[in-house]
């Protein structure tokens, strides 16, 4: 992953994730947007032949984009882990 802080906007950064696509891009963006400290979250796949996804995040002054992405990923692990155990019990 490559993190590039925005040179003009405070508390903003882009996260380039290699070898990922809409699956992870959309799911991370969605989780970020549920946080009140996140002002902006969006993702794009700049070119169909390059297998990277870029996520842009801007947060309030209370926190940092890196921290919010880390939280989003943590929450995702909890949610997927929870669903997985639910499915295991039910089948």
């Amino acid at each position: 992953m490559k993190i590039t802080p925005d040179t003009k906007v405070q508390n903003a950064a882009t996260f380039e994730i290699f070898r990922e696509d809409h699956t992870m891009g959309n799911v991370i963006r969605h989780k970020l947007l549920q946080e009140p400290q996140v002002i902006f979250a969006g993702y794009k796949i700049p070119h169909p032949l390059e297998h990277n996804v870029i996520i842009r995040v801007q947060t309030t002054n209370e926190t940092k984009p890196e921290a919010m992405v880390a939280k989003a990923l943590n929450d995702l692990i909890t949610e997927v882990g929870y669903l997985r155990t639910k499915f295991m019990v039910h089948k």
Binding site: M1, K2, I3, F15, I17, F18, E20, T23, M24, I28, E66, V69, A70, L73, N74, L76, I77, V80, G81, L83, R84, F87, M88, K91
Partner: peptide, 25 residues
Amino acid sequence: EDIVMNAFKKLLEKISSIQMGLHSN
């Protein structure tokens, strides 16, 4: 049911590997 289970496993692996990428940064 294995397809669904493996999909959950794969999704967890994908999130973890992004997490590792974030921390190594």
